[in-house]
């Protein structure tokens, strides 16, 4: 729970690349969907609700009866932070926006807000999903203003 130490100019280490997710048995569908440009969410048919982040059990019913559904990828900014100290793989990108997005399916997801200046992002602003290709297998979700 701490602030990263300030970067030292001298003997600056080579920047590490952005971490690339390694899908698990339980998240493979999500990343396969992302590769075809869709934001997939787990749907609990017993409780008729979505959940995120992915788990293989319903946090409502305690059953593993969940299905994946492609969604519209639309929602609004519930909160955001403008990052001035680059995280691993984000050297040279500051300041950048990390949003806590409330999707229309009533779940929240953390992702970058791109194609938007830090001074223009607002709580309540409508956004839609987009994807950044990180590797042949992984397209990573982000959001942009939905005008």
């Amino acid at each position: 729970m701490s602030t990263p130490a300030p970067k030292q100019a001298a003997n600056k280490p080579t920047p590490k690349p952005r971490p690339i997710p390694k899908p698990t048995a339980g998240t493979k569908y999500f990343w396969d969907a992302a590769k075809r440009g869709k934001l997939a969410l787990q749907y609990d048919p017993d409780n008729k609700s979505y959940q995120f982040w992915p788990r293989t059990i319903s946090v409502k019913t305690g059953k593993r009866n969940l299905e994946w559904r492609d969604t519209s990828g639309k929602g609004h900014v519930y909160s955001f932070t403008v990052t001035h100290v680059p995280a691993t793989g984000f050297d040279g990108k500051t300041p950048y926006i990390v949003g806590l997005i409330e999707l229309d399916e009533k779940v929240r997801i953390i992702g970058n807000v791109l194609n938007c200046k830090p001074e223009d992002v607002k709580v309540g602003m409508r956004v839609k999903v987009m994807f950044e290709k990180l590797s042949d297998d992984i397209s990573y979700f982000a959001f942009e203003p939905d005008k």
Partner: peptide, 15 residues
């Protein structure tokens, strides 16, 4: 964290 947190650049607790 590995799939849904670190790749967003949230930078841990400060973010």
């Amino acid at each position: 964290r590995n799939e849904f947190w670190e790749p967003t650049g949230i930078n841990g607790p400060p973010g």
